[in-house]
Design a protein around this nucleic acid. Structure first.
Lengths: 205, 205
DNA sequence: GAAAAGAATTGAGTTCGTTCATTTTTGAAG
DNA sequence: CTTCAAAAATGAACGAACTCAATTCTTTTC
């Protein structure tokens, strides 16, 4: 099972991902050539293409790892949400937004989101879209949980509202990464205003 | 004012836009080379680059014309909206969605939206983002109008809600163009469900 | 342990978007 | 009408992503 071939394959994958991750972050996705990554990972250009379908898919593999972490972190909030709807949304969205720029630059996010729209059939584009869909489900789960706990009106369509809230926070994040000058605080402030409007309507009573 | 130089410039711009529009639509954005467009428009490759910063910006110029039309059409709905909130939203969004594939293919939309995220500083990317922002404002105006007419609760933040609704319909449209197989009817059905949930909470009483 | 099969690596070659030094065209001045 | 300067057009050259025929490395078989 763990023959030489398997081991080498895993090792090369790791080296490529590490090299690409560091180079993209330090010098920018656009400034890095495939040859640079191949050299840093000590493989040939052709080999790199045996492991990832193209430059963009390599980026999406890196970004997907980040989204997986965020998805994990969000779980705790859904399990045990703050009693107020606005607070609960703020807590979950805070996790999403605050993790975002720890390992990835705005340019990397821009490129990744652009690619997931432009080339949605690529392996890691499919993966990224799946993860996005799971994030949406997580927001839906939060709304349902708030309803179950009696913090939100039970009559509203939790799934529909969860999707709306997720699509909004997603689009707000896109606007944020589109403007290099925009600070994270502005993103938080704007999203909070929108979620307050939604929370007021969702609240019991 | 209308010297030979001006006339030739306008004529070349028109020829380039027409050629690109037709070729992108008929054979796909990705399948068309800059040289193909230049040949069809009877200019050199270099000249094409004097008129548009790059291939993507040329596409965004074409898409922007489409968005301008949609924005115009939407105006009438805002001025004179149906009395029910869900109906009013359906009417406006129907205009947006139904116009979308008359002149543009899904691939063109995918590429255009991807580019507006990936390269937001390019001239027609800026233009496209402005138009998007005007569409958002149009939705906000509709909500405010419904409030003024007494069809929607006056206590909710019309601007925040308008943005949320717009971001949702935008994201739904992205999901639609990402899947070549998805019919327009599915997009309508899904969005209608979400808007129904929102409309119920927005309704007076 | 040698040999054959098959899997994976390699880098030179191809393609296409983009640039830029040169040439051509236009409009203004005398 | 001629001359000159500025604006615009041109296409050959460049750079980078991606491909593929030839080669090298693993594993399996006898």
């Amino acid at each position: 099972m763990a023959g030489l071939r398997e081991k080498q394959k895993a090792d090369r994958t790791r080296r490529i991902l590490e090299a690409a991750s560091r180079l993209f972050r330090d010098r920018g996705y656009g400034a890095i050539r495939i040859e640079d990554i191949a050299q840093a990972a000590e493989v040939s250009v052709g080999t790199l293409y045996n492991y990832f379908t193209n430059k963009g898919d390599l980026l999406l593999a890196i970004v997907s790892m980040e989204v997986e972490e965020v998805l994990d972190s969000g779980h705790a909030i859904v399990e045990n949400p703050p009693a107020d709807i606005a607070d609960a949304l703020a807590a979950l969205i805070g996790i999403y937004y605050d993790h975002s720029l720890i390992y990835l630059s705005k340019e990397m996010w821009r490129t990744a989101m652009a690619l997931s729209i432009e080339a949605p059939e690529t392996p890691f584009s499919v993966r990224y879209t799946e993860l996005d869909s799971k994030l949406a489900t997580q927001v839906c789960d939060l709304i349902a949980r708030l309803q179950a706990l009696g913090y939100a009106r039970a009559t509203v369509d939790a799934q529909a509202m969860g999707q709306v809230i997720f699509h909004n926070l997603n689009q707000m994040f896109i606007e944020y990464v589109k403007q290099d000058a925009m600070p994270l605080a502005t993103l938080h402030a704007r999203t909070t205003r929108q979620n307050r409007a939604l929370a007021e309507m969702l609240r019991q009573g």
